[in-house]
Amino acid sequence: MTTETTAISPPTIGGQLPAIQALSALAEQHPTLPAAYITVQEPAPRYNTDARLDVQVDGPAFEAWRTALGADPAAVVLHTTVSNTWLAVDTTYEGVRVHLAGFQGPLSRAQVDAPRDTTAVSA
């Protein structure tokens, strides 16, 4: 038995390159998408995860981004809290994982009480 430890090299920007290239391709293919807050997450080899993109948009821009990313409308999830409401979907684009979130204010009482099913949602 040895006391050697296996060192994991820290992630580099080179590991983020696939996500950066996917973002570049998205911008080239869809130059009129509304601006977004985008972060490129570093790969985490220890957890067997590659680099990914996290995209946050204002609520009205969500559908345009969802469509451009090719995310399945049935995969969209509505999240609500007392003070916030957002739609979110996880998808892949150009082989890179993408998390898209569209934020807006709280729902009205009528919106909270309205019946929902995925066929009535445009996103």
Rank of each mutant, 00 (worst) to 15 (best):
H30E: 10
T39F: 12
V112A: 13
L107E: 14
G102F: 00
A19L: 11
P43Q: 08
P73Q: 05
V112T: 09
L100T: 10
L78V: 08
P106I: 03
T32H: 00
V96N: 02
A35D: 14
V77N: 06
G105N: 04
T92V: 00
L87W: 09
T118V: 12
A44I: 06
T119M: 10
V112M: 15
V76R: 06
H79Q: 04
I8P: 02
G14L: 12
Q29R: 14
G102C: 01
T80V: 09
E42N: 11
T2G: 08
A51N: 00
T91W: 02
V57G: 05
V112E: 12
M1D: 10
D58C: 03
P43R: 05
A120F: 00
G105A: 00
S9E: 12
Y47T: 14
V57E: 08
T85G: 02
T91I: 03
S9G: 04
A68F: 00
D58K: 14
D113Y: 06
A35I: 01
L17K: 04
T119S: 14
A35F: 03
P11Y: 01
H99C: 03
Y93M: 01
P60V: 07
A120S: 07
F62W: 08
I20V: 15
D90S: 09
A110H: 01
A61D: 14
T12P: 01
A110R: 14
G102R: 02
G15N: 15
V98D: 06
R97I: 02
P10L: 03
D90V: 15
V55N: 01
S108R: 07
L69P: 01
A64C: 09
A51E: 11
V89C: 07
P34L: 03
A25S: 14
A120N: 01
S24C: 07
V77M: 12
V77T: 06
A51G: 00
E42D: 15
W65S: 03
R46S: 15
L33S: 11
R46E: 15
Q29F: 00
S83Y: 08
A64Q: 14
A44W: 02
T5E: 05
E4D: 12
I13F: 05
F103H: 13
L107P: 04
A74T: 12
T67M: 10
V98Y: 03
S108I: 06
S24H: 09
A25Q: 09
A74H: 00
T6D: 04
D113A: 10
Y47R: 08
V89F: 13
D117M: 09
D117S: 14
S24E: 08
A123W: 14
V57N: 05
W86G: 06
W65C: 07
T6N: 10
R52A: 14
Q41H: 10
F62P: 02
V112C: 10
G70V: 08
W65E: 01
A74L: 05
R66E: 01
V57M: 10
T49V: 05
T85Q: 12
H99K: 12
D117G: 11
